[in-house]
């Protein structure tokens, strides 16, 4: 099967080349702006998939990490007076904050099984949103603004595009590493039957918690990048209930538990949503469209484009 492997490697090289060349081919900042958001969501969806897609525990609380990353970045930059491009040195700190929040979060939420887990993630999400509203160090309902970044307008979007692309590449690499490792195998054993996996010696809590923390760290990192890109964060944008929905939709559309699925899903959904929001005659209708797409996906391609498409191709042969 050298052919298939070669084709996969060639496809990957082409894809990376296309991603790197994208802002050069379309220098219009409005187009690059779509690219930045697409890469942010490629990262977020892949990060979500590393935990929820592989373990089968649907988290609707990943906005906690996205928002915490954004706020960690904002608070650290403000309190330590960090300005300019040096702020990006704070990204590992933001990842650590996300992972650190994930540990107690996971210790509480991962004690229960799937249904209840979903609800607890929602509850903890609301606690975080409320904290962002009520504490003074988070700036209350006004939120935080990012310190001025002295980048020229002409390179602003392009630079952010490459930063987000690097994060996306990291997320996909993590997703690939986890999937082919014995750690990933344990995660998927938990997804298929947790009791049986535990019976076979998988330390379920430890495995789930590690995946949860890794996923959280990545989500927090991209949250911090997002904060710098849009220049501000408020409680309802950093801790946005639609964030989790969007990420879940992307992953299910592309293919739940696959590596390419969340990437493809994000590349389809995010530019689509951005475009819908720019259409004045569709004002307020983007939710309806999102909902309808959601229903169509679940009813007609329930396993996502990548697995279903793969099956069709195999059948053609």
């Amino acid at each position: 099967m050298i052919g298939e492997r070669g084709a996969k490697a060639g496809g990957l090289v082409l894809l990376v080349a296309a991603a790197v060349a994208f802002p050069l081919a379309f220098p219009d900042p409005a187009v690059t702006n779509y690219g930045v958001f697409a890469m942010i969501f490629v990262t977020a969806a892949s990060a979500w998939n590393v935990f929820s897609g592989y373990s089968g525990y649907i988290s609707l609380g990943h906005a906690v990490f996205f928002g915490s990353g954004a706020y960690a970045m904002g608070i650290a930059a403000r309190d330590w007076n960090i300005t300019g491009a040096a702020v990006f040195e704070l990204l590992p700190l933001c990842a650590a904050v996300g992972a650190a929040i994930a540990v107690p979060f996971g210790l509480i939420a991962l004690r229960v099984r799937r249904h209840t887990f979903i609800v607890i993630t929602i509850a903890i999400f609301f606690i975080f949103q409320l904290m962002a509203f009520n504490f003074s160090f988070t700036g209350g309902s006004a939120g935080l603004s990012s310190p001025f970044l002295t980048w020229q307008e002409s390179v602003y979007d392009t630079r952010f595009y490459y930063i987000a692309l690097a994060c996306a590449a990291g997320a996909v690499a993590l997703s690939w590493l986890v999937r082919r490792s014995s750690f990933g195998l344990r995660l998927r054993a938990i997804r298929d039957d947790e009791d049986r996996a535990s019976g076979l010696g998988v330390r379920a809590m430890r495995v789930k918690l590690s995946a949860f923390a890794a996923s959280a760290g990545l989500t927090a990192t991209i949250g911090a990048v997002w904060f710098y890109y849009v220049n501000q964060v408020q409680p309802q944008t950093g801790f946005d209930p639609l964030f989790d929905l969007t990420v879940v939709l992307m992953t299910f559309l592309g293919g739940y538990g696959t590596i390419a699925g969340p990437v493809l899903g994000a590349l389809l959904v995010e530019p689509g949503t951005l475009w819908l929001n720019t259409q004045p005659q569709l004002a307020g209708a983007s939710e309806i469209v999102l909902g309808v797409v959601f229903l169509v996906v679940v009813l007609f391609v329930p396993r996502g484009i990548i697995p279903t498409g793969g099956e069709w191709i195999r059948r053609l042969r």
Binding site: H115, V248, S286, E287, I288, G291, L295, P302
Partner: peptide, 25 residues
Amino acid sequence: GAERTSMTLLVTYAVALIVEGVLYK
């Protein structure tokens, strides 16, 4: 099937989004 729990969750979420969007309109 196996993913019924998550699927029904998504379906009801989608219904919620559509109803909310229509009410907003």
